[in-house]
Amino acid sequence: MPPLDLHVAVFGASGAGKTVLLAAFYRAQTQPSFQEEYAYKIQAVNKAQGNQLLGRFYRLEEGKFPEGSTRFDEIEFDFFPRDLPEAAVRIHWYDYPGRWWEDEPVDAEEREAMRQGLLKLGMSQVGILLADGAKYRSEGTGYIRWLFEHFADECDRLRRTSAATGDEVSFPREWILALSKADLFPPDYGARDFEREVCRDADDQLAKLCSVLRAEHAFGHRFMLLSSVAAPADAHAQVDPRTSLGVRTLAPAILVSTVEGAVREAQATRKEKSAKETFFQGLRDLVQFVDSVDDFLPKRYQIVSKILRFVSLKDFASTRVDRLKKVREDALRRGDTFKAVLTGMVAALRDEEGLRAYHQNQ
């Protein structure tokens, strides 16, 4: 059976840390220790891209931070269960260059690359907006307000420009707001704290951004802390790759956000839905019709029908890591590729790092 395809689009201004994050994301999840703890590992579909990411990370260990990407990159990662040969999940990672936020295309070739990149964004189930933790720490909520305003204006401009050329660009409807360079914040600072600050001090800007994206619930309820590596106190010391935060939680957050998006789409088709209906009530209804969900879900959410065949409602609702790990290990023994990886991802949101790095308030 082919792997499930998850598409994620990553946005961030120049210097926010997208390039470093991608290298850390890949390196952390290719290690034997990660495979032992989480019961899966990842592999770049393109070997050259995988080697390039590892090379960036090893140079990072030497204190050589890579330059930001200036082009639209698409990288595919396969997720393999421990000791099983078949990939269960494939993530398509679309990296939208920060420079494209700030400057016009330099020539016709770059203009065409931007057009092609925008068309791929419509395939994405989840978008990630990366806020620069260093700027947030030094400038406070003024920076976050600027980020939301700037991103809303840019999305509006891209939509109008593409419509004028006959290409109707669409953006992901489910979003995660992630704070990079989280190692700059106190050890007890979590995604819940970030959420509280943003919703308190930038609510008007959040509302504008949701309106531009034409998605009422796009922003304001999924938050992450991400730190690719912690900067050493001694400028001459080596970077410790074990000091990352949130990179192991990122793929699970994308998975759960995809399911949540499908539930929201399904709920929107039902006129009798209660205004107080919870996500898990909606998920329960979706499970009851899992054999026919492809009939009414948009194409980018049709993979949810497969996910819900392998991960039970009880698994999604459970907060007990020990139960989820038991389900995962049982799936490994049976050779159940999909259930092993998907349940392992859900468990990663419940462990100590996941609870600090990821928070959703709805």
Rank of each mutant, 00 (worst) to 15 (best):
D132V: 01
E197F: 07
F185P: 09
E195K: 05
G122A: 08
A163F: 12
E168C: 02
S211I: 13
V239D: 02
E168A: 04
D132P: 06
R192I: 07
H236D: 03
L130K: 06
W146L: 10
E174A: 11
A231G: 00
F171N: 01
S244W: 08
A231M: 11
F151Q: 06
F151N: 05
S162A: 14
A218M: 08
L206T: 02
H236L: 05
L226M: 09
D193Q: 10
D193R: 12
F148D: 01
A134P: 01
A231R: 15
R214T: 14
K181D: 08
Y136N: 11
H236Q: 10
R242W: 01
K181L: 05
S170F: 09
L119W: 09
M114S: 03
R115F: 06
R159Y: 10
K120Y: 07
D203G: 08
L177W: 06
E216M: 02
A233P: 00
P186T: 06
A134V: 11
M123C: 11
C210S: 10
G140C: 06
I144G: 03
A202K: 11
R200E: 02
G220F: 03
R145D: 12
P187M: 13
T243G: 03
A207F: 04
D156T: 14
R242L: 10
L184K: 13
D240G: 03
R200C: 00
S244D: 02
G166W: 13
A218P: 08
R160M: 10
P241Y: 00
D240L: 00
L225S: 02
Y143E: 11
Y143I: 14
E149M: 07
V229G: 00
D203E: 12
D183M: 01
L177K: 04
R196H: 06
D193A: 14
Q205T: 10
V212P: 08
I144R: 01
L226C: 05
S124T: 07
D201W: 06
Q238H: 04
R145V: 12
G133F: 07
H236Y: 04
F194G: 02
Q116E: 11
E174F: 01
G133I: 10
E112R: 08
S162W: 01
R173Y: 02
K135F: 04
P172W: 08
K181I: 09
L213Q: 15
D204H: 13
A182W: 05
D132W: 09
R137C: 09
A202M: 12
F185V: 05
L209M: 15
R222K: 01
L177N: 09
I176H: 07
